[in-house]
Design a binder for these strands. Structure first.
Lengths: 267, 267
DNA sequence: GAAAGCCATTCGATAATACCGAATCGATTG
DNA sequence: CAATCGATTCGGTATTATCGAATGGCTTTC
């Protein structure tokens, strides 16, 4: 009952807070007018206008040629590009993920936690020449993905956050009961593997393994994405995935792999 | 002399302006402390601290585990992902770029203008299976790239902006004289093609063509990137590039291609 | 074709707000 | 163990963003 994130009373600068909320709103519904934003935030239009114009001056939002609708701006792209460059995990992972994709013939993803969801930090395509959407930057609900289950299993704060709100059903197979999800995490910890079979996208399944940093924490997860027709994953595939996860972790200076579960478990 | 961008006296909200400047600083030098930022902005550390914390609350910046240094945050990645999704140009271009990459065996880029530079909006890799850095989000100086030359040629505001400041020499072959760059644009307009031979990266050359929108404006440019050993590009390659540029423009509803130059040119 | 409604935008007064300087806490170094 | 450097907290003050009302541009409607 007393849990939450925004009633903490943290000292946040009002206008920046509002600006960030506007960006988040534009993230949800792509193109919005001033008064639309104003209504959503319960603020006078003139206030919103000032904020939006300030964001626009820095390219963080842009108004489309049509005139009176605003969208996210190009400066965000450059910022995110630099953000990706600062991530050691990603830099180290890229090489092994490419190898993993080559060996398995499947797409691979690297994910980390962002506000209770999973954000894809790197994506290596299937090596066949087909056209594939870039997935870097996508966010996926934690409870419905292999990546998410792994991250949940080793980060209790993340788990508490993600499982405290109602879980969306993305397909018929999505597990929407928090307790059931939580129960599954036990096994994830035991095997250091997370599975997901058509729980997020129909026809698509995945397996994920944890990636550890220098001080043994799980900072990310790698996944292999496969067509559901290939389910369950072969031992060879799982072996390759574990190899990749171990290699990345080793490159990062992790002392052990698989990681020791955080919660006390009697021998 | 009287030209400029930031002395316009536009009504910008102070704290948002400062927040954006902090993001830009973090974009330049990856990891900075509070006092470092404060020095750069000539502000008291406590002020900067407040702003940074507010940004942090929304995931726009993050402090690294080490403790007292800040970096750009993961929320930017999600925002940029949505930004990319809102771009029709990109959505339409992806398919044709993939075909272009397949036909030529080379990497292709789609670029647009951002504050006088070129930002890469989409990148299709070389179809060989080699590991390649994702280039989406990179920015390239306009004067040293084929993409940039095309964009400059059709957007006089962009040209005025980009060529008013000193031009960086990225390689020995970079053209750093604004007038010389400007002179080259004439030919770009005539051929609807921009060329660049080792002017940005040694061993790499590229050719670009304009992409037009519904109302005939040049909104982006497509480029093929090739090893300099293949220079000059074959007619077949240029043909394929033109085909792609025309197809994308057509999909966008452009009335004509190649675009009519903006400057009055007597028949 | 004219009028009305909608929405973005501008302006100026007000008080709420973010800013700043000084003090505190924590970490790192000699 | 002492001292320095930096991040962080706190509270008073004045700058600053906010808001309401008025304007202007655009599309819609009758």
């Amino acid at each position: 009952m007393h849990g939450g994130r925004d009633d903490e009373g943290e000292p946040v600068i009002q206008s920046i807070d509002r600006a960030a909320k506007i960006l988040t709103l534009l993230q949800g519904s792509r193109r919005m007018g001033i008064s639309e934003l104003a209504a959503a935030l319960d603020l006078p239009p003139s206030t919103v206008h000032g904020i939006v114009k300030s964001l626009q001056a820095h390219g963080l939002v842009a108004q489309q040629p049509s005139g009176n609708r605003y969208v996210l701006g190009p400066a965000l792209l450059k910022l995110s590009s630099v953000y990706l460059d600062t991530l050691d995990v990603r830099a180290r992972a890229m090489r092994w993920m490419h190898e993993l994709s080559s060996r398995t013939g499947l797409a691979t993803r690297l994910g980390a936690e962002l506000f209770g969801e999973v954000i894809v930090i790197h994506h290596d395509r299937r090596p066949d020449g087909t056209e594939q959407m870039p997935e870097t930057g996508l966010t996926i609900p934690s409870h419905a993905s292999a990546l998410g289950k792994v991250l949940l299993a080793y980060d209790s704060a993340h788990a508490a956050d993600a499982l405290s709100r109602p879980l969306a059903a993305l397909t018929a197979d999505t597990v929407t009961d928090p307790e059931q999800v939580r129960a599954g995490l036990e096994q994830v910890r035991r095997e250091a593997l997370g599975f997901e079979n058509e729980e997020a996208v129909i026809g698509e399944s995945s397996v994920a393994a944890p990636v550890c940093s220098e001080d043994g924490d799980v900072v990310a997860a790698v996944a292999v994405v496969m067509p559901s027709t290939d389910w369950p994953p072969s031992d060879a595939l799982i072996g390759a995935l574990r190899d990749a996860a171990r290699s990345i972790s080793r490159d990062l200076g992790a002392p052990t792999w698989p990681p020791r579960p955080p919660a006390p478990a009697r021998a």
